[in-house]
């Protein structure tokens, strides 16, 4: 989604090679289900009948759909699963960047979401991540570090795009650490 395809010369070659590459293609651990939808709606007290009233949903969208802004929920791994020795990370490219650039802390600053086909109950989404850019070193009130842009693409089980999400993250080291 971002047009920026840039990386400064002082970052590792391995990180430079990730720019523009499709990485971590995966299917969501869970199908789109009502429990998380209700929890999300409760977290912001969203009473939109589209998500609560099956008759309204049938009339408007041909059946129950998930709130569009929940798009990232369906590919996030759970905190634990049998056989998993290390916690899986939801946006692995972000965590790879923290590690390879030796920036122990990170926050997300900008987020752009584009919504296409509605996400429906029972859908199983497929996603992948693309690193678009890494900035020069910058100093902010949080510490010194780099900004990066990661796009996440989402498709449903029919291969239709349901949306794209673009994250800007800032990985940093606090002053004196």
């Amino acid at each position: 989604m971002s047009d920026a395809k840039a990386a400064p010369a002082d970052i590792p070659e391995e990180v430079r090679s990730w720019i523009g590459q499709k990485r971590y293609e995966q299917e969501g651990e869970i199908e789109v289900e009502r429990g998380y939808i209700y929890t999300s709606l409760a977290s912001v007290e969203n009473g939109n009948p589209l998500f609560w009233d099956e008759k309204v949903a049938e009339e408007l969208t041909g059946g129950l759909v998930a709130p569009p802004t929940m798009i990232s929920v369906w590919f996030r791994p759970h905190h634990w699963a049998p056989g998993r020795e290390k916690a899986a990370q939801p946006l692995q490219v972000h965590f790879d960047l923290k590690e390879k650039l030796d920036l122990p802390e990170a926050v997300m600053t900008d987020n752009t979401l584009v919504f296409r086909e509605p996400v429906r109950l029972g859908d199983r989404l497929r996603t992948w991540q693309v690193l678009r850019s890494v900035s020069e070193l910058k100093r902010t009130k949080l510490g010194t570090g780099r900004f990066w842009v990661i796009d996440v693409e989402y498709v449903n089980q029919h291969g239709e795009s349901v949306g794209t999400e673009s994250y800007t993250g800032f990985g940093y080291r606090r002053e004196g650490r």
Binding site: S40, V44, E45, N46, N48, L50
Partner: peptide, 14 residues
Amino acid sequence: TPHNAAYFERFVTD
């Protein structure tokens, strides 16, 4: 971040 997005979605569709 997703919680923030969910608030804006609610605000718009309200």
